[in-house]
């Protein structure tokens, strides 16, 4: 009889211990869940804020595209009015000279045969697994520009930003800037020149070939075309800011 009671006590103790563990676990999880709900609320706020900023950013990007187009049209209108005005008044030579100088300065859109080179980060780039060489750096863009210049390019642009003698491609923080603008990958470099010569320097470049190897996986693609369009220098209407140290200092 005593043995039977002892056995029942032992069973009861086991059940109580089990219940204790389950309720303890239950309590911990409930607490954790409450905490999660709290942080979830905070996260929801963050998501809301993020989406709000994303929307504002999109609006501003649309606005920028409109303003950019307006700027392009106004510059074209200005050039057309000046040309008509000069011709009307018999200043044909001045009109031609002005047009010539504007072309040399990079203030006009130019078209011709050439090449389009695209650089992009390795698809699915993972900062923990992949090499730093798998993403595009400012030096890579400069390298391609230098290759194209050395192969006789007559006009170059990166992501539709015209490269002039005052242009610099530089990394500031996590973004690459050119001509006061932030650029995001893919980086599309267009150049007008002999397509065969331009393609040859890209194909034959050791650094680019190494970077696009399977192990590194950087995207480097190029195609030649009979008509490549290189846009004008976006700041052509306010280029004076780039000659502040030069103007008035010509002999």
């Amino acid at each position: 009889m005593k043995k039977k009671f002892q056995k029942q006590d032992k069973k009861k103790l086991l059940q109580q211990s089990l219940l204790f563990v389950i309720f303890l676990l239950f309590g911990i999880i409930i607490m954790n869940h409450v905490e999660s709900v709290r942080s979830e609320t905070k996260r929801q706020d963050l998501i809301f804020q993020y989406r709000e900023f994303e929307k504002q950013l999109q609006d501003q990007q649309d606005k920028y595209a409109r303003l950019e187009q307006e700027n392009k049209e106004l510059n074209e209108r200005k050039a057309a009015v000046i040309e008509a005005l000069l011709i009307d008044q018999g200043y044909d030579t001045l009109s031609n000279e002005l047009q010539y100088v504007r072309v040399l300065a990079g203030f006009t859109e130019v078209n011709g045969p050439g090449i389009i080179v695209t650089l992009n980060d390795k698809p699915g780039y993972d900062i923990l697994k992949d090499s730093d060489a798998s993403i595009v750096h400012d030096g890579d863009i400069r390298h391609v520009i230098d290759l194209l210049r050395n192969a006789g390019a007559a006009a170059i642009s990166v992501n539709d930003l015209r490269i002039t003698h005052v242009s610099s491609v530089i990394c500031i923080g996590s973004t690459i800037r050119c001509n006061q603008s932030r650029m995001l990958p893919p980086f599309v470099i267009k150049a007008i020149g002999d397509p065969v010569a331009l393609q040859s320097v890209i194909d034959g470049d050791e650094m680019l070939n190494l970077r696009k190897s399977t192990e590194i996986g950087l995207i480097v693609s190029s195609e030649t075309s009979e008509t490549v369009t290189v846009p004008p220098f976006m700041e052509a209407d306010q280029f004076q800011r780039y000659i502040t140290l030069l103007e008035g200092n010509t002999p």
Partner: peptide, 25 residues
């Protein structure tokens, strides 16, 4: 027409383009 201002603009564009000798610090 303000021809002078157009001539000045042409001159500035020529400076920017590197068609003029420049002197400074």
């Amino acid at each position: 027409a303000q021809i002078e201002s157009i001539v000045r603009e042409k001159e500035r564009a020529a400076i920017f383009a590197g068609l003029r000798e420049v002197r400074n610090y």
